[in-house]
């Protein structure tokens, strides 16, 4: 499925992930985690990969392979350098708490595997999670 790189489509993206996971018997708790991870990943693409780009689109596929769900997002925007994302300090007090990097942190915590490839033809994010 191809989506415009606009936040208004996050609802549809979460619905698509939920439908696929529900049909494969994933628990509602895991479905929420999958929706959150997909939302955070799509948000990063819209906000960072396509920062300042008009009429951009990206694609998402969501499949069941064996006992796991595989979510793949492809974009042709700016590539993402994980090295530039600081691990959020979850112990910092209120004044020092930084919100940047929280999306990526949540994705890694919520999913079993997260893989990111970047090439001249674009960026591919692959996330998997096993049925509980």
């Amino acid at each position: 499925m191809t989506f415009p790189a606009k936040f208004e489509f996050l609802d549809e993206i979460r619905d698509m992930v939920a439908e696929t996971a529900r049909s494969a018997g994933f628990s509602e708790k895991t479905i929420y985690s999958l929706q959150l991870a997909a939302d955070e990943a799509a948000t990063n693409i819209i906000e960072h990969a396509y920062a300042g780009v008009k009429n951009a689109t990206f694609s998402i596929s969501c499949e069941i392979k064996g006992d796991q769900i595989v979510i793949v997002m492809r974009d042709t925007g700016k590539s993402f350098d994980a090295k530039n994302v600081k691990q959020p300090n979850l112990k910092a007090d209120l004044a020092e708490r930084q919100i940047g990097g929280l999306g990526v942190y949540l994705i890694r915590k919520l999913m079993d595997t997260v893989q990111y490839e970047s090439s001249a033809s674009g960026n591919i994010l692959t996330m998997t999670k096993r049925r509980d």
């Binding site: 929706q35 209120l94 004044a95 919100i99 929280l102």
Partner: peptide
């Protein structure tokens, strides 16, 4: 029903301001 880190960011900013 749902809140992503974008909502957490709003909560954090408001908590800072209020405290």
């Amino acid at each position: 029903e749902y809140m992503s880190s974008a909502g957490f960011r709003a909560l954090l900013a408001t908590q800072r301001n209020c405290k």
